[in-house]
């Protein structure tokens, strides 16, 4: 654990990890320890450790530049950490011998800018990885795509191209693309930041349903209200470190660290 964590945060950390301790012997779905990453001289992650339990929804908050997106992107090695360990279901996924493509099939990722393939319709956006990475036959991949689209409520949009969809619909197709691979954990990188306010609710609604279905999720987002209401745990990052974490009520009503307080007072003029 980082030496920089203040004592109340350590207390919270222990509280937060207590459910894990009760499931003794079963490793967390995702575990990050001692993660460090620099871009040139800028140290973005300074010894970050975090674990996500099965079916847990963990929200990562923090100012932009606090390292939260970089931390998330290290989890599926879109960003290569300088040092530290990342374990998926107890298996290390850092190191040269790891088959990264195989690992990434187990980690779904949803991006701020959706990143749907513009030359493929919604169905083929989803089936591409099923066909080419999982080598599924066409009918099986199509069936999975249909099921994934149904889960995000877009069955009728299977034949639509990204340009024909609203931002909210595009992001839901992107979520469907990720869940079709039946990942062990899903990473959300500011999934609603590029959306018009009236479309945010649809995407959050889908995320809530995923949580109810038991999906494990690690979410970087500024949706405070949603974090408070839906997250199992909130992690607050500042200056490349996790400075505080715990249940959302505790973090939002009684933040211990000064940067958490400063952040929350700036963001939550609303309750």
């Amino acid at each position: 654990m980082s030496k920089t964590i203040t004592s109340p945060a350590v207390r919270r950390l222990c509280e937060a990890e207590s459910p894990a301790a009760s499931k003794a012997g079963r490793p967390p779905i995702l575990e990050v320890t001692g993660l460090r990453k620099s871009f040139g001289r800028l140290e973005v992650l300074k010894n970050v450790s975090l674990s996500v339990e099965k079916s847990e929804m963990v929200f990562v908050l923090g100012r932009s530049g606090s390292g939260k997106s970089t931390m998330l992107r290290c989890c599926n090695r879109l960003e290569e950490p300088d040092s530290g360990a990342i374990l998926l279901e107890g298996q290390a996924i850092t190191g040269r011998e790891v088959n990264l493509d195989k690992v990434r099939r187990r980690i779904g990722m949803v991006f701020q800018s959706f990143n749907l393939y513009p030359h493929l319709d919604a169905r083929r956006n989803i089936t591409l990885a099923l066909r080419k990475a999982l080598k599924q036959p066409r009918d099986e991949a199509d069936a999975r795509a249909a099921a994934a689209l149904a889960r995000v409520g877009l069955t009728e949009k299977a034949g639509s191209y990204p340009a024909q969809l609203s931002g909210g619909q595009q992001q839901r197709v992107a979520i469907a693309r990720a869940i079709a691979l039946e990942p062990a954990v899903m990473l959300f990188d500011e999934p609603t930041s590029a959306l018009d306010p009236e479309l945010v609710g649809d995407v959050l609604g889908v995320m809530r349903e995923l949580k109810e279905d038991g999906m494990t999720m690690l979410v970087v987002s500024h949706e405070m209200g949603f974090a408070r209401e839906a997250a199992d745990r909130v992690v607050f990052m500042a200056d490349g470190r996790i400075v505080e974490q715990g249940p959302p009520e505790a973090i939002f009503t009684d933040p211990q660290h000064e940067s958490t307080r400063a952040f929350l007072s700036r963001y939550s003029s609303a309750p």
Binding site: L78, D101, F111, S113, N115, L128, A133, R177, A178
Partner: peptide, 23 residues
């Protein structure tokens, strides 16, 4: 081509060559 296209393709487990050819 937007870097996000590579990232999306690689994040679903497509290899470099597959991402290049199909995306």
């Amino acid at each position: 081509t937007d870097k996000g296209q590579w990232e999306a393709a690689r994040s679903t487990g497509l290899g470099f060559g597959q991402s290049l050819i199909h995306v």
